[in-house]
């Protein structure tokens, strides 16, 4: 049995009548890098707040590192490093002084090693040169790094990073990804929330997708990809005959999806009219349908001129959009 670093059961948080988090069951295995995905306003940060005992759950249970929260908060939180809803510091103190200050709040953090640990955390996020500067003078990216340094002040078993790459330049984003990977390699479980799918795809082993307060999908990244439907994409001048063949093989003809995901270079070639009369036929490949080569063989037997044929898995992005909906509306 895999031990879970974070487990929630029916976790719900209501503000008045509105449920910001609605009965979610998170399962984050130990050692995983778990991407907590969702559009803005889908309840990610609220979940994290409730999980870490900053806010009380309306109902449901949370256990972190095997201990019930918030009852065992005192024993659990020293083992958890967190960056929640952006960094926050005393603007009139230097970066190092801020870390000192926050470290004194942890009774388990030995004061004898405080200066060393602060220096090492600053070094790890590349802020050593700015350690003595007042945080007032820090850029957003530097504050973000300092926030991550704060999470790394002590050796942690679990890191909870809420939007860790916010405000970072591409270089900083890469560094955060490398940092997360190296922490994971050391055995730390990392729970990272993000609204950026690409980020999650690049560094996570597991993911959960939030939409309007509900957890709509969860699992290993590969499993999540697999759940997505596969498509057949066929280039041919004999579109109607091809459609008939595909339909007879029980593939779902789905032009809308095909058009949306049509490769750019092909769209260009039709636009130029070089292959006049050539069309792209796409269809969804349901489970249990014939192997791709059998489909091609059937097409050729029916004298369909096959100029291009591909089977494409749904990208995680399509899956993400399918789950959370498209557009910029903040979920209500």
């Amino acid at each position: 049995m895999t031990e879970l670093a974070i487990e929630t059961r029916g976790l719900t948080k209501r503000f008045g009548r509105q449920a910001a988090v609605d009965g979610i069951d998170l399962a984050v295995p130990r050692g995983a890098v778990y991407g907590f995905l969702g559009p803005n306003g889908s309840g990610k940060t609220t979940t994290i707040r409730v999980m870490l005992g900053l806010a009380a759950a309306t109902s449901g249970e949370v256990s972190i590192l095997g201990e019930e929260m918030p009852r065992h908060l005192r024993d659990v939180l020293p083992r958890v490093g967190a960056l929640v809803e952006g960094p926050a510091f005393y603007p009139y103190l230097s970066g190092a002084a801020n870390l000192h200050r926050l470290d004194t709040a942890d009774r388990h953090a030995p004061s004898s090693t405080r200066s060393t640990r602060v220096a090492r955390a600053l070094e790890r996020v590349g802020l050593s040169h700015a350690a003595g500067k007042r945080v007032r003078a820090y850029s957003l990216g530097m504050k973000q790094r300092l926030g991550i340094a704060n999470a790394l002040l002590s050796p942690r078993e679990l890191l909870v990073l809420d939007e860790p790459t916010n405000g970072l330049d591409p270089q900083g984003t890469r560094e955060v990804r490398a940092l997360v990977r190296s922490l994971a390699a050391e055995g730390t479980t990392v729970f990272v929330s993000s609204h950026l799918l690409a980020e999650v795809e690049q560094m996570c082993t597991h993911a959960g997708v939030m939409s309007a307060g509900s957890l709509v999908a969860q699992g290993g990244l590969d499993d999540l990809r697999r759940v997505g439907r596969a498509y057949v994409r066929l280039r041919t001048p004999d579109a109607d005959a091809a459609r008939a063949v595909l339909a007879s093989l029980r593939l779902d003809l789905d032009d809308a999806v095909g058009a949306q995901a049509e490769p750019a270079e092909h769209r260009q070639s039709t636009a130029q009219g070089a292959d006049a009369g050539e069309e792209v036929v796409s269809a969804v490949l349901p489970l249990g349908s014939p192997a791709p080569e059998a489909i091609v063989a059937a097409l050729v037997r029916a004298e369909v001129r096959v100029r291009g044929f591909a089977v494409e898995g749904a990208s995680l992005e399509e899956r993400f959009v399918a789950l959370t909906g498209e557009g910029f509306d903040i979920a209500q």
Partner: peptide
């Protein structure tokens, strides 16, 4: 239980055994 996960985890578990009085805050 946590000691098995990693070296760091073992360190932090050991740290938990003896919290200071907390005057530092």
């Amino acid at each position: 239980e946590t000691g098995a996960t990693s070296g760091d985890a073992a360190v932090s578990a050991a740290r938990l055994a003896r919290p200071s009085a907390g005057w530092a805050l």
